[in-house]
Design a protein around this nucleic acid. Structure first.
Lengths: 266, 266
DNA sequence: CGACGTGTTGATCTCTCTCAATTAGAGTGG
DNA sequence: CCACTCTAATTGAGAGAGATCAACACGTCG
């Protein structure tokens, strides 16, 4: 605690390489709208969001959107691609907190002017919507309905972290992997209309899976292999195929849509 | 939805602040107020909260406030005591997601009418404020400022789960315990004006610590013992004393207020 | 007084980690 | 076209942190 307070650990904010001069989409044409992630916004609400939008930012795969400890990160919304939130220990050990996909909010956590408690990095080429710093407050103030939605989304994001915590804390390696694959498959499938049959896009490396589940890379590989050999799933060419969802769900102790089992919980 | 975007929300007629049936405290006298957990609410805001408050609920130690999978849980606020949120697997393995203390919200996660994704149980005798189901929406609608605060609190709660996930996923048993003790100490101390010197109340059993950190009871005991013998802390008679915060923080890889270290994070 | 919950400790056991080495594909430069 | 480099996936072997099993101590309580 000696030398941390005074020194600014924050790396320079990455230069904005991504201002899309002409081609930015307007909120009314946003790719997110057809997905029905939230209630259908009114015209006024769309206009409001549009007015708070500053610009877009496009990143290639493996780039940093927010550095851990960065102090001036704005509020983002994810429009396309995959990313993840993570934290690291000083010796480099990394834990991925959650994966982000189209429609997710980024940066609600940090109080304005505060340091980001986690980093965000892309997995694929990705497109983000950038909002001004006080957008969150403006949104609440001028549209309580949208503010309410943000609260709900934030709570939902937390419940996903809760699920991961349950996995990492109490599930075996096999169970963790089964559970993650199912959950990611569902999310990805929900965003990709033609999903299901032919699998879904799956840009994670085994290292990402390991870091998301608190496992070592080697053990992740061996476990993944085992499940695949057992015919539960298949990962190839950046796609994930679930071949035996039933068995996978049984292994993960996941029921229905992820709720606890209908058993004597009391 | 009439008065959403572009228009400031319409203030409701002044709610009835006088209702405070048998012995219940009114919001204006709430024990939480002196703690400055959020911005100082105006008189109108207090009245609003008061109008949404349904009643209070008092539980003894070890009682369930919300059962896992319960479908009709209302929204709560914690006034006194300790509690925790948890999830279990069907074979009984339990993971404690977070500990709750005065000022914490409970139940924001579940959409109205939805099943609770986690259970909540008390550690001590505890007092809760019970709100009607749609309180969350009413709060947003009638006081954007308080709605904004709820979003912020929800995000903050998530960041605490993030921290735990980092611990459980990537820290050793010693490091996890050190990190938990420091974090709980700080929270408890913040609520207890006379804190610091003589330690703080600490109602967790070793089983709770284990379930919160994804460890077994036995290993938790041994690790706790080791740290205590090393003079880092002491737990006795339901109180926690930190005897060497420096060493404890170093062990936990916690810096300052929990931010990542000022090291080459990139 | 016996039942129970909580804390302790010793003795195995095993799941997962770490270390090492190999293969395969993509990219790069000569 | 080929050597060279890098990243990601694999596999084997040995080591270890933490789990499981078993006992026991102590205080509370009906």
């Amino acid at each position: 605690m000696r030398d941390t307070a005074g020194v600014d650990p924050v790396p320079e904010p990455p230069p904005d390489t991504s201002r899309a001069p002409g081609g930015e989409t307007r909120c009314r044409d946003c790719a997110l709208r057809p997905l029905k992630l939230f209630h259908e916004p009114t015209g006024d609400e769309l206009a409001l969001v549009q007015s708070l939008k500053r610009r877009e930012r496009r990143l290639g795969p493996g780039e940093a959107l927010i550095h851990e400890g960065q102090t001036d990160a704005p509020l983002y919304t994810m429009l396309q691609g995959w990313a993840f939130r993570y934290k690291t220990l000083s010796d480099g050990r990394r834990q991925i907190l959650s994966f982000l996909m189209a429609g997710d909010f980024i940066g609600v956590q940090q109080k304005m002017g505060d340091a980001a408690a986690h980093g965000v990095e892309t997995l694929t080429e990705a497109l983000f919507c950038v909002f001004q710093r006080d957008a969150l407050w403006e949104l609440h103030r001028r549209s309580p309905m949208m503010g309410f939605n943000v609260t709900w989304l934030t709570a939902h994001e937390e419940s996903m972290v809760d699920d991961t915590l349950l996995s990492v804390g109490r599930r075996s390696a096999e169970e963790r992997i089964a559970s993650m694959l199912i959950l990611l498959f569902k999310r990805a499938a929900a965003l990709q209309p033609d999903a299901g049959a032919g699998g879904v896009d799956f840009p994670l490396t085994q290292q990402h899976i390991a870091d998301g589940l608190g496992l070592s890379l080697v053990h992740t590989n061996k476990t993944l292999r085992k499940l695949q050999r057992r015919g539960l799933h298949r990962i190839a060419d950046g796609r994930l195929y679930l071949r035996d969802v039933k068995a996978m769900a049984r292994l993960a102790d996941l029921y229905g849509d992820g709720r606890p089992p209908g058993r004597p919980l009391v």
